[in-house]
């Protein structure tokens, strides 16, 4: 057992947990943040993607103790003051989901790729979604949502620069 101290969605958290507790179980079962999903549990499907120190990682393939001292952002941490994050908004407007199970991981991956890659085109978006599986196979609208959100993010950046 170790006491794991970290920041989750901007709040400091310290909880005792077993060393073998995976980050995804820590988030879901100890912190009650059930927006992060467990799909395959073998680091293939991407339903568990969260950000650790600003980078998208699969929380089923990382122990909670490894995240000690880190800043973790989950899907619950994206909306601010009751307003959806622009990527969440783009998924809503483009109907970028069917059953919704993969959506939290898709959105966390999308936020990460938009931050890393300027001028995202559809082929790049599909390549970057390699580690996220939608078993409704609803990729078309997911790609459209990410493309839309990326364009809006680029527009915002230009607006600020001007």
């Amino acid at each position: 057992m170790s006491v794991v101290s970290l920041t989750v969605n901007g709040k400091e958290v310290a909880q005792e947990t077993e060393d073998r507790t995976l980050l995804v179980y820590f988030l879901r079962e100890q912190l009650g943040l059930t927006g992060t999903h467990i799909g395959c549990d073998t680091s293939q499907c991407g339903a568990c993607v969260v950000h650790v120190d600003g980078r998208a990682v699969k929380s089923c393939t990382m122990f909670a103790v490894q995240a000690a001292g880190s800043e973790v952002t989950t899907i619950e941490g994206l909306a601010k003051d009751g307003k959806l994050h622009p990527v969440q908004e783009a998924f809503r407007e483009n109907h970028g989901l069917q059953c919704g199970f993969c959506t939290p991981g898709m959105i966390m991956t999308a936020v990460d790729m938009i931050r890393r890659i300027p001028n995202l085109d559809r082929a790049t978006i599909r390549a970057e979604l390699e580690g996220n599986i939608c078993r409704c196979t609803g990729y078309h609208n997911i790609v459209s949502a990410i493309e839309d959100a990326a364009k809006r993010a680029a527009g915002d950046a230009e607006g600020k620069a001007a």
Binding site: K58, T61, E128, G131
Partner: peptide, 9 residues
């Protein structure tokens, strides 16, 4: 290698 999340680790 793998996918973006795997490459981050």
């Amino acid at each position: 290698i793998g996918d973006p999340a795997v490459r981050h680790k």
